[in-house]
Design a protein around this nucleic acid. Structure first.
Length: 422
DNA sequence: TCTGGGGTCCTAGGACCC
DNA sequence: TCTGGGGTCCTAGGACCC
């Protein structure tokens, strides 16, 4: 059996953990630049506020006190996520992190009659220790675990834990689950299914496999199997990432090449840091820059280009230099850039890099020095600051240039700022 | 005026091989 | 007049997840 633990309204719950006055009030958390809604409390969901709503459409609600809006504070959320996951994985076996706020577990070694008691106690302990409400769904497949989790969240009677462990419960749950709530059925697929008369998860599993295969391919069949109770989604080993991307929208449009180079340097520097933190190296470095798709009155430009390194690397200097070279080749004057990013497209194990056939002593020595400098940067810099940086990078906090007018303090990780001051 | 960021997997079609 | 069959690999785009 699988257990899926999922934090309720996670970003909102993180804000509430340190601002209890937000409890019971309609709250939303906004994306970077206070752009749009990325998390909602139950109260703001009940007001009809949708995921992705642009913040400017909600300003009057906030100004009249009917809604509280928080800028996103990912340093805080990341820290609370670690605390929650530590507690969960200390008790349940088979930990597989799925996202910042949810993880799958297996229940191997726990007697089935104790599932409810063990998970119920865990829900209470996470709440008590971190302030974060979490729900647990238990079922024979991951997709059914998601279904069970929905019920655990929606109905207080479950006290945070819902189990699907019989065919009777499974079919009852599927009949009560709208097809667009099913994990794996996206916003494009759901309308098509509904047009074909499939409105609930039960309608879906009653269709023949060939019907599903023809319309939705192999991924649809997997979801179909999982809903029958047959596992079809593998347990992923914690594989290293295959690509890494650091990108941001800008608070203001950028029309100046020098300014754009500073931003791209920052993004490349963060990519290099991420690579080193997981002992990986980059083979392909790509850069994109976008104009705003919402400004139909301005000329649009969406270039992306990448380049292959002679030898995989993860030093800040190499990644930044390479990214800037790519930027120089795609940059065109006369456009207002709203967003840019650096993408590492091929990630390899840093401990197994092959040397070049005709590499000179000088090249080897240069790389050794760059790696040493990067190692020092990693020791001094903490997530969210770049105290030690290249001259092509911007001074200051990584969040500079990102609008966040409603940001909470770094309640749990304020030592970053203390270090910066010292 | 104002609209996020970071991933994975699958598929179809083209290029290439024999 | 008549023009094969069977593979692999790569890529771009679509779909999905949070």
């Amino acid at each position: 059996m699988y257990a899926l633990a999922d934090c309720n309204n996670f970003f909102v719950s993180c804000e509430r953990a340190f601002q209890p006055q937000l409890e019971g009030r309609p709250v939303v958390v906004l994306s970077n630049n206070d752009g749009c809604v990325v998390a909602r409390s139950n109260e703001s969901k009940a007001m009809g506020i949708k995921m992705g709503t642009p913040f400017f459409q909600l300003k009057s609600l906030v100004e009249s006190g009917k809604l509280v809006a928080c800028s996103s504070n990912y340093t805080l959320y990341g820290d609370l996520s670690n605390r929650v996951m530590r507690i969960l994985s200390g008790t349940l076996p088979g930990y597989q992190k799925y996202s910042i706020d949810e993880a799958f577990f297996t229940l191997d070694g726990i007697a089935p009659e104790r599932y409810k008691a063990v998970c119920g106690e865990l829900v209470r302990r996470v709440r008590r220790s971190t302030g974060i409400p979490v729900s647990i769904g238990i079922a024979p497949t991951k997709t059914l675990g998601k279904v069970a989790n929905h019920f655990a969240k929606k109905y207080p009677g479950y006290r945070g834990v819902c189990i699907i462990d019989s065919d009777e419960k499974r079919l009852k749950a599927l009949s009560l689950t709208p097809i667009d709530d099913v994990w794996g059925i996206g916003w494009r697929g759901a309308p098509k299914l509904m047009a074909a008369g499939v409105h609930t998860a039960l309608d879906f599993v009653e269709r023949p496999e060939a019907w599903v295969r023809g319309r939705m391919g192999i991924t649809g069949v997997r979801t179909w199997l999982e809903l029958q109770g047959t596992p079809a989604i593998a347990d992923e080993l914690p594989a290293p990432r295959k690509s890494i991307c650091t990108s941001r929208s800008f608070a203001e449009m950028i029309t100046d090449k020098a300014e754009l180079r500073l931003r791209v340097s920052d993004f490349a520097g963060i990519c290099a840091q991420k690579l080193r933190s997981e002992r990986s190296a980059a083979v392909i470095v790509g850069v994109f820059a976008h104009t705003s798709p919402f400004r139909k009155d301005l000329p649009q430009y969406y270039p992306y280009q990448s380049t292959r390194l002679d030898k995989p690397a993860n030093s800040t200097q190499t990644i930044v230099q390479t990214a800037l070279r790519v930027l120089d080749s795609i940059y065109r004057d006369g456009y207002s850039y709203k967003r840019a990013g650096v993408v590492i497209e091929e990630v390899v194990d840093a401990s197994a890099i092959q040397g070049l056939l005709f590499e000179t002593e000088d090249q080897i020595e240069l790389q050794r020095r760059q790696d040493e400098i990067s190692a020092i940067m990693d020791r001094v810099n903490k997530p969210g600051n770049n105290l030690l940086r290249l001259a092509t990078q911007r001074p200051g906090h990584y969040a500079d240039g990102i609008r966040r007018d409603h940001c909470s303090p770094l309640f749990t990780t304020d030592w970053n700022d203390l270090l910066e001051v010292s």
